[in-house]
Design a binder for these strands. Structure first.
Lengths: 197, 197
DNA sequence: TTGCATACATACAGCCTGTATGTTAGTTAG
DNA sequence: CTAACTAACATACAGGCTGTATGTATGCAA
């Protein structure tokens, strides 16, 4: 087994370059947006050629999807982690909201998940992506908190959608420079009012 | 003054082709999205060449902006029109919500104003566009309806943002096939709870 | 009617995406 | 241990698109 330079298995190589491409792509997508980021730029940042990119990803959109998917997964992980302590339904919702804002404070996330994502992949696919990951948490939380209201399931579901839209808008505004405290307060008040008896 | 064919002033010609280009562009942007719509397609639909397009618009994005601007103006007009009757603050909000859903039911509007618009022009510019037109109505309505709550102005403003986000999400879901009744109910309930004493 | 500006058309340069085809290194069968 | 195969890339190429530069004809103004 010769060594010296870099003796790696194919699997390791593959994983490493895939990750490197995704990483570089994320940075550029964040800085310039999906449309204005060219594949030559991406691979140049990694020190590869476009051949490598198109070997690992079907096309530019597939690469974007990989970036989005990783991002959504991380957000979901942070939120679920916050729900770790067993709190009452109300406190759980508030904690989830705070965790969401924390997660979305990571630079670039707002643009990726709330702007370019829906436009490039479509709402349907984006809904699938974060339905699989994040939104179930909110829906379950709201269902628990609103149980006393005895609403139809689909009504609660709709309310959860609307609430998550409010979360997203708040994240967007905070990202655009608004004070987090203002929106955190508004969100908390919104939740309070929604689940109050 | 010879006639027969088409004797038009330069101004008329200009306005007509501008409108025709915007119209054709709108149809294609709706059908295929901004990125997947090529300028050759657009002008072909009108029976012109790209020279005409680039004579009237600085670039493709400027044409898109013109489309968006017209669309936003129409939505705002419909909403303000609905606020015509002098109702109480609560009823005015509900009427405004219904008018918004009506306005956004026009095919393509959701995609233009809520998906491609923010992604292509950026949130900042989109915010300017419909702050100039539509959102002031909602903000004033909510301010009036929540006056008894004696909130700070910035808190009300934040709530208005969140509420408009809920409107947008509802329009998105309805556009994607959800039942309007479900979301109309959820929105009404949301408004009720927000402004209830 | 002479001259300039406006409304377009045509032509061109550069870039980008996706695919097809090479080349090298790793993996596996005998 | 080596021959055959496959995976990981690099190189080369074909279309298509954007934006600009330039040409032409028509309206307009002096």
């Amino acid at each position: 087994m010769q060594q010296g330079k870099t003796r790696r298995s194919n699997q390791e190589r593959s994983d490493a370059t895939r990750a490197a491409i995704i990483e570089a792509a994320r940075a550029l997508f964040v800085a310039k947006g999906y449309a204005d980021t060219a594949t030559p730029e991406i691979v140049a940042a990694v020190g590869l050629t476009r051949g490598a990119l198109y070997h690992h990803f079907a096309d530019k959109k597939a690469l974007f999807r990989a970036v989005i998917d990783r991002e959504a997964r991380e957000v979901a992980a942070l939120i679920e982690q916050s729900a770790g302590e067993n709190l009452g339904p109300h406190e759980a919702l508030l904690a989830g909201a705070a965790a969401y804002f924390d997660a979305m404070a990571v630079p670039g996330r707002v643009r990726l998940l709330l702007l370019d994502g829906p436009a490039v992949l479509g709402v349907t696919e984006m809904a699938l992506i974060d339905a699989a990951h994040g939104r179930r948490t909110l829906e379950e939380g709201l269902t628990a908190a609103m149980a006393p209201h005895r609403l139809e399931e689909k009504a609660v579901k709709a309310m959860a959608f609307l609430l998550s839209a409010a979360f997203d808008r708040a994240a967007l505004e905070i990202d655009a420079g608004a004070a987090r405290a203002d929106y955190a307060y508004a969100i908390d008040r919104l939740i309070d009012r929604l689940i109050a008896p």
